[in-house]
Design a protein around this nucleic acid. Structure first.
Ligand SMILES: [Mn+2]
Ligand SMILES: [Mn+2]
Ligand SMILES: [Mn+2]
Ligand SMILES: [Mn+2]
Lengths: 218, 218
DNA sequence: TTATATTTTTAGATTAATCTAAAAATAATT
DNA sequence: AATTATTTTTAGATTAATCTAAAAATATAA
């Protein structure tokens, strides 16, 4: 079954908005994430249901079928592999690759993407720490915890982000909070929930907002 | 000015169908090359003329404006650089890359394509021997002659093809008639216009059809 | 549990790209 | 020069994706 550029963005969006397999995603949530209107979403949901990519019950939201999930993961695989290519081979920064990958993920060729995977030596994660599904759609979700949930004196390695906006990524870069960097929690300020952490012998302060969006492997 | 996938294919087609800058391209020729109907072409020509990519006079065919030519060359540059990438880095064969490049050429990012150009070390020609315009749209047209126009005992290097179909390219590959290979014309058979040429100490026969589509640098 | 607020769907339009069939213009032949 | 053939354009529809405004369903609160 062929899928259009637009249908693929919907499938990916539904996947990302699904907290877990069973629970349904709302029309409005999809509309917001794709910058469209709810009416447009309803139209598309009917179409995706016809094509058996989603289970759709009027007014009850949607879940992906196994077929839809497979397709969503295939697009996510492509997105993340292209991001690795852009950063590793073409010297893009991690805050510059998202929009380009958003286009490249729609190139239709499994052979191309499998060759790219091989060329990149089968990376397990993308430049933002997100896992890359293999050609069968399999991947393991690393157990990452936001800094905001860590106790004082805990150490860990920065391994992912919850927020992918260029502004946030650029800030992290500037502050040295890059993937692979070891950090240690020193203190949480009760007043505003900000944290003092140590990084490379220095103590720095990060806001609660940042702490919630920076993920650590312990 | 933004251009859609479709508009870009039209511009490229008009460019390829233009024998030289001045002479106009017919509606029917465009329709045939894009596998659409003449009526659809007329609609699109009006649109491209509005956007000032082409000079269009009803019933008189079209020529590209400088702006249209620039855009067409930009797309051709992308097409050919992606082809080089696919062959050089991802181990595709020269007969496998066209359709993929046909999609990839529409990724909108000059930064991406300039970085790719650099990554590939600024190739001058694509896997089929066609010249790659630089970032300013400049390129030099190599002087290539089809085998069918060569005299006996002439030697030369295979440097391009006039026909890009996978069938033809696969045949050339199998026969050893690849880019860079030196050949020598031995004899032309008057009866059917076929040629006997020598390649790596062996004499082989190629049809007139093949001879017309294989380009040589002397 | 009735009234109010929110969410979702339908109705009806719009825009881009395409098509078929018919009309108009141009080119080729008697 | 008149007729015929070919090419090109217009007229009118269709399909995908989108929108606004209004109606319907569901959720929340008095
Ligand atoms: Mn996308
Ligand atoms: Mn990513
Ligand atoms: Mn194309
Ligand atoms: Mn080529």
């Amino acid at each position: 079954m062929i899928t259009s550029f637009t249908e693929e963005n919907y499938l990916k969006s539904i996947y990302h908005l699904s907290p877990d397999e069973g629970t349904a995603v709302n029309t409005n949530a999809i509309a917001e994430s794709l910058n469209t209107k709810a009416a447009s979403v309803t139209d598309m949901l009917k179409k995706l249901a016809d094509k058996e990519f989603i289970n759709y019950i009027k007014y009850q939201g949607v879940t992906l079928t196994p077929l839809g999930r497979e397709r969503a993961l295939n697009i996510i695989r492509k997105h993340r592999l292209w991001e690795v290519f852009l950063v590793e081979k073409l010297n893009f920064k991690w805050d510059e690759v998202h929009d380009l990958a958003e286009e490249l993920e729609h190139i239709h060729s499994d052979l191309l993407i499998n060759r790219l995977d091989e060329f990149l030596e089968f990376p397990k994660t993308d430049p933002h720490g997100d896992p890359i599904p293999d050609k069968h759609g399999k991947f393991n979700v690393p157990e990452l915890i936001p800094i905001s949930k860590l106790k004082n004196e805990t150490s860990g390695i920065i391994s992912g982000v919850r927020e992918h906006s260029p502004l946030f990524l650029k800030y992290l870069e500037k502050t040295g909070l890059v993937l692979g960097q070891e950090i240690k929690i020193k203190e949480q300020i009760e007043f505003d929930g900000s944290f003092i952490i140590s990084i490379k012998e220095n103590d720095i302060m990060i806001s609660r907002e940042v702490a919630k969006n920076l993920l650590i492997a312990i």
